[in-house]
Design a binder for these strands. Structure first.
Lengths: 241, 241
DNA sequence: AATATAGTAATGGTTAAACCATTCTAAAGC
DNA sequence: GCTTTAGAATGGTTTAACCATTACTATATT
C-alpha cells in the first residue's frame, strides 16, 4: 500500500504519501487508516515519528483521530473542509476587525447572490424555500427560538454560496461563518423588530434568486449584509463606550 | 513562563498555551522558544508529546523549526501568513478548476481595485508606479525577462490588495497568488503581444487608482483579469485536446 | 426475557532513555 | 591569517513499556 519512508524528516515523507493517497482518491472519505502500530510497520519507522505525521494530517484537516477500540484515523472529505486555521485564527484573535469582515461579506456575498440567481435549479429553490419557512416558524415561536433563527439565516447565506457553484467562494464563506458567531454572540442585538426585518430581506432575496434576477439578488444581499453589519457595529460602539 | 499541562490530549494543551502566547503578543515574531528538552520540563511532559505540539504549531504556520546548534523553534509573524494549507491543497490538487479560480478573481479583484482607488495615498501610488516601471523594463529587455514580468504583474495585484486595506481580502488573494502559478506555468501563453497588452492594462489601472476613479479601477481590473483568464482557458483547451 | 454490570481487548495517548544527524563554534594546526 | 577538525547543542528517531478510552461480550440480576 505504501512505499517505505525516506528523506530528512521521515514524518514529512509519511505525511506526503498519505496525503497523496487521500487527495488522489486512493483513500476515500470515511475510510479508516490501519492502526498506528500497523502503519509503523508499513512505513518501517517508529510509532513516535508516525504519530507526528498523523498529527500533521489531523491539523491539515485530512483525517480525524478517535481513541478506543474501533477508533483510529478516519479520512475526511476533501471538499467543504475549512479553508483554514489561519483565517480562523485571524478572526478569533481579532486581527481582523468587524469592519473588515463586514466589508468583505458585503462585497463577496453580493457576487455570490448574483451567481446563485443565475445558476439555481428547481431543487436549489426548494431548499431555499424550506429554509425560509423554517426561519418563519422560529420567528413565530418567539424569543426562545431566536438563536435558531440566526442559525437558519446563516444557513441560507451558505446555501447561496453552494448554489453559486464555485468551491472557492463556498469554502471561504464557510470558514467565515464558522467563526463569525464570535462577533454575533457579542454584538448582534436580539430584537424582534430586527429579526423580522431580516426575515423580510431573506424572503425578497429568495424570490429574486427564484426569478433569476441576478442584479437584484446581488444588491438585495449587499443591502441585507450591510444593514446587519451596521447594526453590529453600532452595538459594538455602545458596548465598548 | 507556562502553566503545567493538563487535559485529555496533553499536546493540545501545550499547543494552546504557546499559541495563546504568540497571538497575544507575549511571544513576538523572531523570538526563539526554549529547546525541546527545556520545554519538556516546563510543561512537565515527555519529549514525544511536546514534539507533537510543536509539529501542530509548525503546521499552523506559527513557528519554524530548525535543526543544529542555535537552531530551535522560531516564532513567525502572525500577519501576512498564508490563509492556509487547505485552500492551497484545493488549488494544488485541482479540486478547484481554473474556471472557478478565474471567476473568483474577477469578482474579488474588481472589488479590491475599487477599494484601492478609494484609499490609496501618495506612498501607495509611488509603489505602484515603481512596480509599473519595473514591469516596463522587463518587457523592453525581451523574452528572457518575461517570467520576471509575470511576477511583477502579480505583485501589482497584491499591492492593490494591500492598498485596499482589508486583511481578509489581502490574505485570501495572497494564498491564491502563492498557488496559482501552478496554472500559470502550464497554461499562460508567453507571447510578446499578450504581455504588452497586459502592461497597457496595468498602466490604465494604476492611473485610475491614482485619480481615485473607483468604478473605473473596478471594471478595468475585472476586464484585465477576465481577459487573462480567457487566454489561459483557451490554452488549457488546446493543450488537453 | 430484558436489562444492568463487569470484564476484556483494541486503539490512541504518554512516558523514558538512549542514540543519530545537523550545524554552529572554537580550538588546533598549518 | 586561513583552514581543518573536534566538540557541543539542538532537533530527529528509535524502542519498549504503560495508561486511558471505548466498544463489545459474557455474566449476573431482575
Amino acid at each position: 500500500m505504501f512505499r517505505e519512508a525516506r528523506q530528512n524528516r521521515i514524518f514529512q515523507d509519511v505525511v506526503e504519501q498519505i496525503q497523496e493517497a487521500i487527495l488522489k482518491g486512493t483513500l476515500k472519505a470515511g475510510h479508516k487508516l490501519p492502526p498506528e502500530r500497523q502503519l509503523r510497520d508499513m512505513f518501517k519507522t517508529s510509532r513516535g515519528t508516525l504519530r507526528e505525521a498523523l498529527r500533521v494530517l489531523e491539523q491539515k484537516g485530512l483525517i480525524t483521530i478517535k481513541t478506543g477500540v474501533s477508533g483510529g484515523s478516519i479520512v475526511n472529505a476533501v471538499t467543504h473542509r475549512q479553508v483554514s486555521e489561519s483565517l480562523a485564527l485571524l478572526i478569533q484573535y481579532q486581527r481582523v476587525s468587524l469592519r473588515d469582515l463586514a466589508e468583505f461579506r458585503e462585497g463577496v456575498e453580493g457576487i455570490v447572490a448574483g451567481l446563485a440567481a443565475k445558476r439555481a435549479n428547481k431543487k436549489d429553490i426548494e431548499q431555499l424555500r424550506a429554509l425560509l419557512s423554517e426561519a418563519k416558524a422560529c420567528l413565530d415561536e418567539g424569543a426562545s427560538r431566536w438563536d435558531a433563527f440566526i442559525r437558519i439565516d446563516n444557513e441560507i447565506h451558505l446555501a447561496l454560496a453552494r448554489i453559486a457553484g464555485n468551491p472557492v467562494y463556498e469554502s471561504i464563506l464557510q470558514t467565515i461563518y464558522n467563526n463569525i458567531h464570535l462577533y454575533f454572540d457579542r454584538f448582534l442585538p436580539r430584537e424582534e423588530r430586527i429579526l423580522k426585518q431580516n426575515y423580510r430581506d431573506l424572503r425578497k432575496i429568495v424570490i429574486a434568486v427564484e426569478e433569476g434576477k441576478t442584479a437584484e439578488a446581488h444588491s438585495l444581499v449587499q443591502d441585507h449584509v450591510g444593514r446587519f453589519n451596521r447594526l453590529m457595529e453600532k452595538n459594538q460602539k455602545e458596548k465598548t463606550d
